[in-house]
Structures are given as structure tokens and as C-alpha cells.
Amino acid sequence: MRLTNIAAFCFAVASAFLLYSLNYETRRLEAQIQAQERESQKAKSDIAVLKAERSHLSRPERIDPLARSQGMMPPRADQLVPDNVAASAKPDAAPLRRLAESE
């Protein structure tokens, strides 16, 4: 009888301990989830801002004068060829030759 009581008491203590530790573990995990959600929210917000900034930096209004200052310009009619012509055209060997000579 006494043994049963002791066992029951130990079991109760162990259960209480287990319950409390589970409770604390759950709370810890919840806090962790919340922290990660906040982090993910923050990352999403940062991505949105970065996306907007990248688009702002690559807007044609800004790129246009930069490209022109580098000597670029809208393509002329004689600079464009249809795909089939471009595919069968031989590459210009001169730049490769120059490269080989410089080495």
C-alpha cells in the first residue's frame, strides 16, 4: 500500500514536472515562431523596398542619359538583322585575331 502511494506520488511529481516542462517548451517554441514570423515579415518588407529601389534605379529615365554618356544610342535600321540572317552569318574574326595577337 505504502509502495503504491510512493509510486503514485512519484508519478504525480514526474507528471507535474513533465507538464510544466512541456508547457515551457511550448511557450518557448511559440516565442520562437513569433520571432521567426517577425523576421520573415521584416524580410518580406525589405524585399519589397529593395524591389522598388531596384526598379527606381533601373528606370529608363535614369538609364537613358547614362547610356548616352557611354556613347550608346537607339538602334539604327542598319544595325538590325532578322534572326535567320543573324544565325547564318559568320562571326567577325577580327576581334579574336587581335586578342590572339595581344597574347
Binding site: S45, A48, V49, K51, A52, R54, S55, S58
Partner: peptide
């Protein structure tokens, strides 16, 4: 696919 409008915080 280039961005024209987006939401930011």
C-alpha cells in the same frame, strides 16, 4: 515584368 507600382511599408 518590370515593376510599375508596389506597396512598401
Amino acid at each position: 515584368g518590370r515593376l510599375l507600382a508596389t506597396d512598401v511599408e
